[in-house]
Design a protein around this nucleic acid. Structure first.
Ligand SMILES: [Mn+2]
Ligand SMILES: [Mn+2]
Ligand SMILES: [Mn+2]
Ligand SMILES: [Mn+2]
Lengths: 241, 241
DNA sequence: CGGCGTGTTTAGGCTCGCCTAACTTAGGGT
DNA sequence: ACCCTAAGTTAGGCGAGCCTAAACACGCCG
């Protein structure tokens, strides 16, 4: 009688993930959802680590069932890996929201703090913070907060660089990684929820003239391309007019 | 020309302490202030680690100037070691206060959470939490919070087990380490600031009858010995009567 | 089709923090 | 004074994460 028992379906109790492992899974998740799969050098760059270190870690994580790895071809998360990544991302974004919303942190300094705390905070703490915030659905930079059971609603936004001239838009999201950019955006009054209109776009990748509130501001194309926007009041059903 | 350059007096920029190192220094500080010096096995017990591991770590910390170690005789913190320990203790106690005071944690669960967060939180976060609390001077268990520049005011309390019968006292402090004891004390309404009177003490290490508020409660001597108390309203000047 | 460069992996090595097993030391008891 | 035991240290080893240097694979380009 032959019993095939490779990869038992009943998972034995896994040890808690270490901080580096959580950061790898998070980075791979983000690269994967942007580029389809995560290459060794992209992960290395994202984590400021040598490529050889990534190869080693990826091999370990594949052995533990968090991802599939085809040598020379990149890595892709398994369900277990995606679950773990989304858990860390949830913690990160709730922490950012709490620091910004309750403790008065400026939005350009919440990321670094959350990058550490996401590995130390208990589930109870995270849920208490979420409750104190009224269970927010997006973080201070407009990124969606995964639910506790591991689902995210990723909205497909357009870049302000592509948005048609003259049509008002709502600022929706910006990366949390570039603190200087965030400070600049705060300066000119651009944050998630702000209405913004592209008044004019100079040719040859020239600057854009924006109307933000009552003020007109000129920004470079590098800034505009980083700012994601959406159509205003997209929540009302289409037949409501 | 001979220049003696061993042990330069200008300290080079030290790398940030790791979480285990912070926990060692904290444990040694606490043992030292309770027993004069910290023995290898006491530290091992406090950190749930093998004695051999302590010997190794103590050797490293001595080499880095955080403590003095006489083999077979125990360890004592240097000024640098004491500073580092008090910094971690400050963070721990502010975190406990914040979790309990702002996030509604029960006081028996703040310790474990703070034990992790104390290594991850930035100075800015700690100071923002302290500010949100109005710069508290004691934590939820009555332990004094060291100042940012590294001083603590340790009050010499007496145990409830020794307190004279009939004289009212104020509950002042209890260890944060035993969650079950903390739950019990919360149950019977004993927390820092509560007035308590020993009505009767049964002989041969028998139970104590306490008056807490309007209720009478009997507690064992093991509980009473853990509860530290002080004379009521010790803040009013003596000539105020 | 063969060579070449970029990207990846392998090989070997390091520190930190922990372990167990074997030893040494200090110090109290006889 | 000596021995015995408890406490402490040494020896040797392990896994996690990182590194550099060297070998190698893929796929593009001539
Ligand atoms: Mn972030
Ligand atoms: Mn992180
Ligand atoms: Mn505590
Ligand atoms: Mn700790």
């Amino acid at each position: 009688m032959i019993v095939s028992a490779d990869r038992p379906s009943v998972t034995p109790p896994l040890p808690p993930l270490t901080a580096p492992v959580e950061d790898y899974l998070k980075a791979i998740y983000e690269l994967e959802s942007r580029q389809g799969s995560a290459t060794t050098s992209d992960v290395a760059e994202a984590l400021a680590v040598a490529p050889a270190s990534v190869t080693g870690m990826v091999r370990r994580l594949a052995a533990q069932g968090y991802l599939d790895h085809v040598p020379y071809r990149g890595a892709q998360l398994t369900d277990a890996g995606r679950r773990a990544a989304l858990r860390t991302i949830r913690r990160h974004r709730i922490l950012e929201s709490y620091l910004s919303g309750i403790l008065g942190y400026p939005w350009d300094r919440v990321h670094d703090e959350a990058e550490q705390l996401e590995h130390a905070a208990s589930d109870e703490l995270i849920e208490r913070m979420a409750a104190a915030l009224g269970f927010p659905t997006v973080d201070p930079h407009g990124a969606p907060i995964p639910t506790a059971d591991g689902t995210v609603e990723e909205r497909a936004h357009r870049s302000l660089a592509d948005w048609p001239t003259g049509e008002p838009a709502l600022m929706a999201r910006v990366s949390d990684k570039d603190a200087a950019l965030l400070r600049y955006l705060a300066d000119i009054g651009l944050q998630p929820g702000t209405e913004v209109t592209v008044l004019h776009r100079a040719p040859f990748d020239g600057p854009l003239t924006l109307r933000i509130g009552t003020a007109d501001v000129m920004v470079g194309p590098r800034v505009a391309s980083q700012v994601l926007v959406a159509a205003p009041t997209p929540l009302r059903p289409p037949d409501a007019c």
